[in-house]
């Protein structure tokens, strides 16, 4: 084994050299920092750094489960993530299919650019724009008021917050998420369409029988990844959009951790425990989704 490996390494040395920076990147920035997780079982000491504090066993976790705000954040994270899977995930596929149906190449490019562009605007900016649109003196409320209805408090109503989170994220990310599907569609052999056409399939039939089966695998993989990400509710977005009025439906684990660690002065040990708890859950969810997809006959990730 060792001998063949060495031979292999020597033989493909340039390929391995090309690979090296990526491997180094992962080791340095993803694996080395992992030791920080030990802090979840320690009391943080400023001078000792991550390893210097005394061990406290599971005290940090006990502290954590006693916090009612934590459980609120936990359930909110689950609800918002599920909502993202149900409402946001399919939209990108739909958009890719729709753009693909546009006949003129130029229009295709135009639509794709228009939908992709918002991805590059940061949430800070978008939250400002949304405030201008949805605030009490914003355009939307002015229209509502001029039609004689009562103004709606879009941004502080806990009942509307999740819908706003989903809609704004769809607006911002749908074009970007569609790129990968468009790439998969572009890779479909045109002969398949020609054959279907000869067989008398219309546009919709072609979509159903050629395009969709060809990108189903991609969708499955992306779904697994999305499920594995479920415990991250989207810190950037929520942090910029939420306010105390919508904590009941909008505070997620990440925002809760952030506030606890830096504003309210909960110890770093406890907040690391939150991070670990979340990561373990994410990991299990990833495996679960992978298992289900494989069971359903799809191609899994691992």
């Amino acid at each position: 084994m060792g001998k063949t490996l060495r031979k292999d390494l020597v033989k493909h040395r340039y390929l391995y050299l090309l690979l090296l920076p990526t491997v180094l990147f992962y080791v340095l920035f993803q694996y080395v920092p992992m030791y920080g997780v030990l802090l979840a079982f320690k009391e943080f000491r400023y001078h000792g750094g991550i390893l210097g504090g005394p061990w406290v066993g599971l005290d940090n976790f006990k502290d954590l489960v006693g916090q009612s705000d934590f459980w609120r954040a936990f359930w909110n994270t689950l609800y918002i993530s599920c909502g993202r899977l149900v409402f946001e995930f399919p939209v990108a596929i739909l958009l890719a299919l729709l753009i693909n149906e546009v006949a003129r190449e130029k229009m295709k490019k135009f639509y794709q650019t228009v939908y992709t562009f918002p991805h590059f605007i940061s949430w800070v900016i978008i939250s400002g724009i949304m405030f201008n649109f949805l605030g009490s003196a914003g355009v939307v409320n002015q229209i509502i008021a001029s039609l004689g209805f009562h103004k709606v408090t879009f941004l502080t109503d806990p009942g509307l917050f999740r819908a706003i989170v989903f809609l704004s994220n769809i607006w911002k990310e749908v074009g970007w998420s569609a790129i990968i599907y468009l790439a998969a569609i572009a890779g479909i052999n045109p002969e398949l369409y020609e054959a279907a056409y000869v067989d008398g399939a219309g546009r919709f039939e072609q979509l159903k029988s050629v395009t969709w089966p060809s990108i189903r695998g991609t969708a499955a993989i992306l779904l697994i990844l999305a499920v594995g990400n479920a415990m991250n509710g989207g810190f950037d977005q929520i942090f910029n959009l939420y306010n105390p009025g919508v904590y009941s439906t909008g505070d997620i684990i990440d925002t809760y951790t952030y506030r606890s660690a830096f504003s309210d002065g909960l110890s770093f040990g406890v907040t690391t425990a939150v991070g670990l708890f979340k990561a373990v859950l994410n990991f299990s969810l990833l495996y679960l989704a992978n298992f289900i997809v494989k069971r359903l006959g799809g191609e899994g990730l691992v």
């Binding site: 920092p33 992992m34 920080g36 990440d254 660690a261 830096f262 690391t272 991070g275 994410n282």
Partner: peptide, 26 residues
């Protein structure tokens, strides 16, 4: 894998820092 970074305090701090700089600090 990508999830691994979520585990470390460093990852958490970095995310928080980025948020602080890009979010509150703007």
């Amino acid at each position: 894998m990508n999830k691994a970074k979520r585990i470390g305090l460093n990852g958490l701090l970095a995310a928080a820092l980025i948020a602080a700089v890009s979010g509150c600090g703007n």
